[in-house]
Every structure is written in C-alpha cells, then in structure tokens.
Design a protein around this nucleic acid. Structure first.
Length: 427
RNA sequence: GGAGAAGUGGGUGAGUGGCUGAAACCAACAGUUUGCUAAACUGUCGUACGGGUUAAACUGUACCGGGGGUUCGAAUCCCCCCUUCUCCGCCA
C-alpha cells in the first residue's frame, strides 16, 4: 500500500511511475484517493471540534458536581445531550471516509523504481545477465514429464488419485532429490548468515493483508473456511508477517531470514500448453529468503540477494539468465523485481525459478513495520524477498539437462545430499 | 472441548466513573560530575490522524487486547470476540 502522504506530496512522480506499469486506472484512482482524503480531513476537523466541545462541557459538569451545584450541572447535562447525535453522525461519516480511502489505496499497485523499464509484458523485460552454456541434448532426449515416468521418480497419477491434478507424489530417488535440494538451499543460506525459520503454512486474514496477497489475490489462495485461514502461496507471507506491528531496534537490522515451506497455488483457470509436468503445480516446495532493512540500504540488498541466487544456480551448473522485469510484468506489490530463469534443454524453454523483489515501504506500510531513526522519528523499513529457490522447475531442468542414455547425472554439489550420483533404472 | 484467572506505554506494574495519556520503578536517550568504566544527579522519554507554521512553537481528536453498549463523562460498569495462564479432558 502506498503512503497517502507520498501520493499527496508527490502526485506527479507517483503517476509517472504507475504509467510504467501500463496501469490504466492509475490516474482515476489517485484522483479519487486525494478527493476522498480531502473530504475525510474536512470531516475529521468537524468531528475533532465537536468532541473537544463535548469534552470541555463534560469536564464542567464534573466541576459543578464537585462544587455541589447540582441544578446547574443538571441543566448543562441536558444541554449536552443534544450534541451527542451530531458527534455520532460525524464519527460514522469519518469511519466511512476512512474505509473508502483505504479501499482505494488497496487498489493502487506499488510505484516502480526509476530503473524499472516501462513495458506491457514479458517481451519488455531486460535480460541483464546470462550465464552458462545451453546444453545440446542427444537424439531421443526426453522432456522431464517423460523422464519421471521412465525412472519412476515422480507420479502425477497417484497425486491425482489422492488429491487432484497438480499435486505430484515424489517417490524414491525423486523424493530424495527434493530433500537434497531443500537441504542444500538451506545450508547455503545458513552459510550466508540467514536465520532459518519454520513458520506456519496457514495464515490468518491479517497476514494476507500484511504482505499484500489480500485483497488483490484472494482467489489464488486455498482457503480453510471453517477456521478462516489461508494456505500460504509462499513463505514470504508468514515470514514477513513475523514482523507485523513490530518496531525494530536499529541494531537488529538488517533482518535476514530463510525458510522452506510448501507453497499452495490455486492458479484458477491458468492451465495451458506450457504447464505440463512440473512447470506449474498446486503444491510445491520453495526456499525463500526474506530481508528487512533501512530504506537507504534496500537496493544494495536487492543486488546482494540476486548475487546469492546466481551463486546457487551456478553451483547447480544450470544455465540461467537474469531479467529485470518491466513495469507491466511486475507483481502488484513490488517496486523492482528480478526474475531468474533456467534453461530447460528438452523443452527448449526458459523456466522461472526465482523472483527477487524490493517492496520498499509498500508492505511495511501495511505491516506497520518501523524503526526509530537517528532523529528519533518512526520510519518505515523496506522489505525484500526472493526464492532461493523454487524446487519443481529446478528439478525439471536438472532432469532434462543432465539426462544421458545411462541415467540422469546429479550435480556434484548435491551428491553429498542425495548420496547417489545418478538416477537410473536400477535404483 | 469443560471450569477458573488475566490482558495497561519498550519492560515490570499502579490505577473500580471526572483532577489519568495514564503513578512508580526499570530500560533507553541527552547532559552534569569523575582519570576510564561504574555510580550518582538533572532533564527528555508513546503512537496515529488532523489544525497551525517557511520550519518550529503551539494545539485538537483518538487509542489502556479487539468490537459494541451504558453515561454529560469509561482504562475503570455491561455484552460479544480474541489471546495468555492454571486445572480437567483429548491427543501426534
């Protein structure tokens, strides 16, 4: 959520920023917010004045009672009675205006950072870094959805039976590969100084609002009706919400947390040609890094997080590229996002395996996540997060890129974790 | 799930209808003193949204777990909800 004061004071900057998102309603929404806010302030002045008067009169009643001037007190009391309705009305109007302003603010996405290019979609993203060589596969090489069948390591049919489409069952070496990747990612993060956390994977409504999944993406989350809880779409939600309503000590900054959780995505109506196999699932595991830092450090932090993600991909020996997302392709909450894509050789496609974002104060404003700065003033912190990494597409790329006639080679860095070097038919 | 108790500022904790935005203590911050550290002393010490000002000063309202209600007036009384603790039950 944007800061109202920011919209008020920097309207033009906000508007030109939002333009990069190709967000058509921006101008109307900003106008509407400012208008409603102005009306709100007018009402607040009236309400405050009326309440002040009531408070003064009430105090006078108290004084008269004390002095024993009962009849005068009674008189005044009767006089006050009539004013209460007016205050009540103003109070209600104020609340209505406040929620109107709030509602509008919820609809305005974050303002992209200066460096973010304008654009409407994936074609306008900037390829800012590429690494590794695209493997050339032998004749007869298979896409991962065939490989998992051949080696019997991931089973979609079983998942469909017990849950539904998009809930695969990992078996044998497939399950071990998953576990190996998770441990590898967590160990790497640990080495970089991230604190490991295991948060709940269902969250309440307030948490959904805190990180911005609500009200925007309500339909994309699984919802446990009986308890009013949402299954998390990413560990970002619980881990960032750890800091909701928190005033940090400066000495405890920056906060660096890592967690691995299952992620649940309904992805309603998004099934199509490119979602076969592991490319898009309803449930998958992801290791997420989350940082909270001071405003002046956040873009440096974003860079550091990206470098870290690149290191992981290089250790896994996967060819990848790093994209700076254009305004039109960025998520609602983000001010700047880099996507990381690995090349999946049999599909001959780039697959997104990580998204690293700086939200600036967009989440912190909702979370009320602040610290007291040098001047003793409350200041919103910046939140960032990134996948490090999402499992399924990494698995897909490893399987496809490393396939040989004799089996699938496990990247060297994972072998201490898998305790096998190759996925083959005899295991 | 059943019974009881409790939720106050960064912390401990006082406060059962007006003089309480809230005592006291601790922590924190600034300063004085001291050869350093420590101690002592003095002062400051909530947040949000407004008004006001070039900026301040100054000033209004709201907030004592959350939401309603009673009252001229609520941290204080009433109702609902949430959370925590204790006991019982159940259970990986």
């Amino acid at each position: 959520m944007l800061l109202l004061t920011n919209i008020r004071d920097n309207k033009d900057r906000v508007l030109s920023g939002l333009k990069k998102r190709n967000f058509r309603e921006a101008a109307d929404l900003v106008e509407a917010v400012l208008e409603q806010d102005k009306a709100r302030r007018t009402i607040q002045v009236q309400r405050d004045d009326a309440s002040a008067e009531l408070n003064t009169l009430s105090a006078r009643v108290g004084g008269l009672m004390k002095e024993g001037k009962k009849s005068e007190a009674e008189q005044l009391r009767a006089q006050i009675g009539g004013k209460k309705d007016a205050i009540k009305t103003l109070e209600d109007e104020l609340k209505a205006k406040e929620s109107k302003v709030q509602e509008l603010l919820y609809k305005i996405p974050n303002v992209p950072a200066d460096k973010v290019p304008a654009g409407t979609g994936a074609d306008d993203n900037m390829n800012v870094h590429q690494h590794g060589t695209i493997p050339v596969l032998d004749e007869g090489s298979l896409p991962h959805w065939d490989l998992i069948r051949k080696y019997d390591i991931i089973d979609f049919d079983l998942g469909t039976k017990i849950s539904g489409a998009g809930f695969p069952v990992y078996k044998g070496q497939g399950a071990k590969l998953q576990r190996a990747l998770i441990n590898f990612f967590l160990d790497e993060a640990d080495r970089q100084g991230y604190r490991e956390v295991q948060p709940p994977i269902v969250v309440n409504e307030a948490s959904g609002y805190g990180t911005g999944q609500l009200p925007d993406k309500e339909g994309q989350m699984y919802f446990v009706n009986a308890d009013g809880l949402y299954l998390i779409p990413t560990a970002e939600v619980p881990i960032t919400n750890l800091y909701r309503d928190v005033i940090m000590e400066e000495r405890d900054l920056p906060v660096r947390n890592v967690g691995c959780t299952p992620c649940f995505r309904r992805e309603a109506g998004s099934w199509g040609a490119h979602v076969r196999g592991l490319n898009r699932l309803h449930q998958f595991d992801k290791v997420e890094i989350v940082q909270i830092c001071k405003a002046e450090e956040s873009y440096n932090t974003l860079e550091v997080m990206c470098t870290y993600v690149q290191g992981l991909l290089e250790k896994l020996e996967l060819p990848y590229r790093r994209l700076l997302l254009c305004g039109g392709d960025m998520g609602f909450n983000s001010a700047m996002t880099y996507d990381f894509e690995v090349f999946s050789a049999a599909q001959e496609r780039w697959l997104e395996v990580s998204s690293v974002s700086n939200f600036e104060t967009f989440q912190a404003n909702r979370l009320k996540l602040r610290y007291k700065n040098k001047d003793g003033k409350m200041e919103l912190l910046h939140t960032l997060n990134g996948s490090a990494l999402a499992l399924p597409r990494i698995v897909a790329a490893i399987l496809e890129n490393n396939q040989t006639p004799n089996g699938i080679n496990i990247p060297g860095v994972l072998r201490p974790y898998t305790r096998f070097d190759r996925i083959d038919l005899h295991s």
